[in-house]
Nucleic acid binder design. Structure first.
Lengths: 247, 247
DNA sequence: CGGTAACTTGATGTTGGTCAACCTAGGTGG
DNA sequence: CCACCTAGGTTGACCAACATCAAGTTACCG
């Protein structure tokens, strides 16, 4: 369910890179496709990039839109999802700073992308990026590596969706968030939860109620604690890993 | 469930390409990463490839093995899967001639690969292929395109696993097989089913019994017919598409 | 200090899982 | 060539996990 009306105020505020675009000052470059670029290479990127900010709930693009652009997230949390004809939703991923957005699309986007928090992203026109990839083989390799990681993550998610119980799903999810936060240089706990129960449920193949009940049970067993403003504190990593029943 | 003992007779019969390797005569080149190569380029591929045949049930590699090689399937059907600690299995894909095998692996394979039918494949050492990809940018682009498709397919599968009913799952599965057969130049029906109920169930996140029941119901409703030697005849594509409830 | 959206909790329902028996087809050996 | 054996498949009875439906409750925000 949870079709989730898109109020999408598209106050188009793309900024040409040339203006103030500070690729050199980019705080998350080490996480993005730009990681392997030299100072000089970056000048070229500045010339083909534009920036955008999104507010929570803003839709970046929708399933079926022409896929003219590719993105790199520089701040905030995004969600990508697909809808069935009757409105059932499957969230196929949550994206964080550094993550690349737009892979797996051909002429049109095959999924929708929406901001969960205030977010900023770098936008590249497809042909311009293609050209840059030719120019900078290291960036191409970097992107290929990121695509490979995404493929591996997708397989993990298939195992989760197809074969794990509700409790195993939520445990795996929380550990994944924690590990990804760590990879971005943050602490593994507490985890700021940018997504609500409905979005988590639609990611894990559960209903909102089941998701809530499993949270409650984990809280009661002392494995996690729910802190104010949607932060989750992992109190017992070992127990959580046990619960996740990783392959 | 269905741990599926690997009897794996590994009668190591890799053949160096130089010997008889007929890349020029390759029947499925148009489907593989070699599709965009010229006659001359192929000579280089011949020098880095080796071939292998597998019998049904043979394991090509297992989760955790060092990922030294990448593969392109030239004949037969392969299955890739992951296991949870307690033996639950998730089949993450079925692979057919032309399909590339080994993406999403880093130092070690993150899944196991097994032949469902007699199969043959081309094997490339990772560094040699890497080098060839540099040499032939068209092949690199081709591979990137294949990886993108795989990512899109993985997202489809997440929708299926997370949000579809048993009937919708099986309908989607049969249509997928039919479309892929067609893309390989075969007829869309009847479909030769290389996989058994257990493997289908583990792909769709169902048990063998549920899978069988849904087959029976579809047969009774006249949408499909079960032909001898595990062939499925799709009698009503429209009804099947209706059942699949595509997004 | 309301008002609302998100979340939680409880009662009940349904889909698909589990357990168990049985059937069928293909392969083997007598 | 046929009887048997076995793996795969089907079917039935029952069960459990999760979904659904329906109230509450909490927390954030103007």
């Amino acid at each position: 369910m949870t079709g989730m009306a898109n109020t999408g105020k598209i106050h188009c505020d793309w900024q040409e890179g040339a203006l103030g675009s500070p690729c050199n000052a980019c705080q998350v470059r080490g996480l993005t496709i730009c990681a392997p670029l030299t100072h000089d290479d970056l000048q070229h990127m500045v010339s083909i990039v534009s920036e955008r900010s999104l507010e929570p709930g803003d839709t970046l693009f929708s399933e079926g839109d022409p896929a003219d652009h590719l993105f790199n997230i520089t701040a905030g949390t995004m969600m990508v999802y697909r809808l069935l004809a009757d409105g059932r939703r499957q969230v196929t991923g949550f994206l964080f700073p550094g993550d690349f957005l737009g892979l797996g699309s051909d002429k049109i986007y095959r999924y929708s992308a929406e901001a969960l928090t205030p977010a900023t992203l770098c936008r590249f026109k497809r042909p311009a990026l293609q050209e840059a990839l030719q120019k900078f083989p290291a960036m191409e390799q970097r992107l290929f590596g990121m695509a490979s990681n995404e493929l591996a993550a997708a397989q993990d998610q298939m195992v989760l969706l197809g074969r794990k119980t509700a409790q195993e799903k939520l445990a795996s999810f929380l550990l994944m968030l924690s590990k990804r936060a760590e990879r971005r240089g943050q602490k593994p706990t507490p985890i700021p939860l940018a997504m609500n129960r409905s979005e988590i449920g639609d990611y894990l193949g559960l209903t909102i109620e089941t998701t809530s009940r499993v949270f409650t049970k984990m809280k009661q067993s002392g494995v996690i604690a729910l802190l104010p403003s949607s932060h989750i504190d992992i109190r017992d990593f070992d127990a959580l890993e046990e619960m996740a029943e990783q392959g």
